[in-house]
Each structure stands twice: as C-alpha cells, then as structure tokens.
Design a protein around this nucleic acid. Sequence first.
DNA 1: ACATCGCGTAAGTAGTGACTTACGGTAAGT
DNA 2: ACTTACCGTAAGTCACTACTTACGCGATGT
Lengths: 108, 108
Amino acid sequence: MAYGTALTALADPTRRRVFERLRSGPKAVGAIARGMPVSRPAVSQHLKVLKKAGLVTDRQEGTRRVYYIDPQGLGALRAWLDQFWDQALAAFQAEMERRANNEKDEEI
Amino acid sequence: MAYGTALTALADPTRRRVFERLRSGPKAVGAIARGMPVSRPAVSQHLKVLKKAGLVTDRQEGTRRVYYIDPQGLGALRAWLDQFWDQALAAFQAEMERRANNEKDEEI
DNA sequence: ACATCGCGTAAGTAGTGACTTACGGTAAGT
DNA sequence: ACTTACCGTAAGTCACTACTTACGCGATGT
C-alpha cells in the first residue's frame, strides 16, 4: 500500500518538479525553491508530502535542512509496476494477434 | 512528459483499482464496475482518463466495450523511474556513509 | 544580547476533480 | 419494429488540495 501514497505524491506537477530537482543530489529547501514559480513554504509542504510517502528524507545541517531522495518509496513503486509489466505485455501481444485474425475475417 | 498524465491517472485510489482489475485480463465496463463502490458511469470516466494516459485501450465487442492494459503508459512510467533508481540508490548509500562518519565525530 | 538567516506550521482561499443522476445512442434479441 | 442490454456524455454538487500570507522557532554571526 506504500505505492499508493507515492503515486499521489508524484501526481502533482510542481511536487514532481521538486522531486526531480533532487535527482542531481541533496539540496536545501531554499535552493530547491529558488527559481520555482511557487513560494518557499509551498515547497516545504510538498517536501512534507514526499517525505511521508517515503520518497525523500532530510538531514539537519546547521540552520538549513538538506533533502535527498530516499530509494524506499521509489523501490515500492518499481515493485508495483513490475507486477503489471510482464503480464500486461503478454496480454497486449495476444490482443494484437486476435486483432490480426479479425481483420482477416472481415475481408470481402 | 507522458509519465505525468500516467502518474496523475494512477493517483486516484478507485481509478487505480479499476486499472488493477484489468491485470487479470481484458474486461468489459460492466464487469469492471460490478462490486465496485462507485457507479458504472464513474468507472467509464476513470477508463477515459486511463486511456488518455496511455495506460489502457479498448476494443468494441458487440454492444459492450472491452478494456485492457496498454503497455505504453506503463513503459513510460518505468523508464522515468529508472532514471532515478540507480542515481538515487548511489546517492543514498553515500549519505549513509556520511552519516556514519558524523556519528564517529560526535563521540565524547 | 541582538539581529539575521533558514525553515516549518497555521489559517484561509480558490480551483480542481471525483462522484451522482439523467439522458441519448448503438447493437443484439424477440 | 420494439424492447432490452451496454455504454458514453452532460450537468451539477461536494470535498479535497495546492497555494498564499503571517507567524514562530532554532541556529549562526556580530
């Protein structure tokens, strides 16, 4: 069920942008918010959601808080997706073959 | 950018439940809605969103519409996640080592 | 001690979206 | 032709959520 909160967390575009900014490495809140179209408190709230989803963690560094990506939430998402991948791919190919057979039937 | 719509599509719990019902194979709308806590039109709207996200496709079968998982959206999501995975894992392990070193410094 | 920096939280607001009921339209069955 | 089954869409409502400004707290510097 952990993938549920991760999905809802990554659904919001600006929150996803916050998350993607951490891909290049750990960053403080101010550094993340710099150049963003939203205010710094908004970024803080987004980071709170991402943290609760297990997607990021933080480290105290003096007066500033450094956030970085936590593989835990990412791993839960990957595991969930892999449940579908093989099965969906096989079912899709079977569907394509079924489609090809139907086209033959519909010839004049 | 295709992963964005896929993420917002899978964020909603009931829509995710609709999607998960298709894992066992192609199903008609009525079959999907059967036993769900929401109405059939709601399921139709969810399927519309999933289709626009490239997560499902449909096939006409007489008077009923059969939906099945489309690997396209799933693949876009996997590709996006894999961009983070290796990088995030390495950064996280480096962070753990940094943490271990700090604990040594904090000894009395 | 005081000022400043960096951040989280509270409260309030506007906008989005998930749901309902009602309706229309197509395909099959009698 | 008439009914029935199956589905998509329209319109309207309610809850949630992403954002803002205002505030408070801890850490650093002078």
